[in-house]
Amino acid sequence: MEAKDLQYFRELLNGMLDDVLQKSDETIEDMTESGEVYADPADRATAESDRAFTLRLRDRERKLIKKIQNAITRIEDGDFGLCQDCGEEIGVARLKARPMTTLCIECKSKQEEDEAVRGD
């Protein structure tokens, strides 16, 4: 992969990381500032349900942070854009769609087929 492509993906991944971390900080602020007391149990249940949903989203983003950080590390190590299964280059179009991917489209398709057979 060319140096300009690596720089593009480094900037893209760092931007994604900044966005996710900012959302995380905003969630923490919102949850600590929200000291509302609900007289109606239904309102309280709705607020708790919303809070649980937000926490599930943030947990998914926590996992995404790790994937982004791993992709940035692969750029630094010179492994970015190489399929971890077959060692072939991952297409730039695929990397633009999902820059933290570790599998080429063929290996990812095979993985999904195997999961479908196993019922995962």
Rank of each mutant, 00 (worst) to 15 (best):
I28L: 10
A52L: 10
D114P: 02
D40L: 04
E61A: 11
D30F: 01
R98K: 13
A39F: 05
L103S: 07
E29Y: 02
S34L: 06
I65E: 15
G78P: 00
G81N: 00
D18V: 09
E29G: 01
R10W: 05
S34K: 12
I72P: 01
G35F: 03
G91K: 14
I75L: 00
K110V: 14
L21K: 13
G87H: 06
E2R: 03
D77G: 00
G87A: 12
E2D: 08
V92W: 11
K110S: 09
L95T: 03
P41R: 10
V117W: 08
M100Q: 13
R60M: 06
Q111W: 04
V92D: 09
L17C: 04
S109V: 11
R58V: 11
E33N: 14
V117F: 06
K23E: 15
G35N: 15
E2I: 02
F53Q: 09
A116Y: 08
R44S: 11
T101F: 02
Y8E: 12
L13G: 10
L17M: 02
K67N: 14
I68Q: 08
E113Y: 12
G35V: 07
M31S: 07
E61H: 13
L6N: 09
C107A: 08
E48M: 07
R44H: 15
F80C: 00
R10F: 05
E29H: 04
S109R: 10
R56L: 10
L95I: 05
C104D: 09
D79C: 00
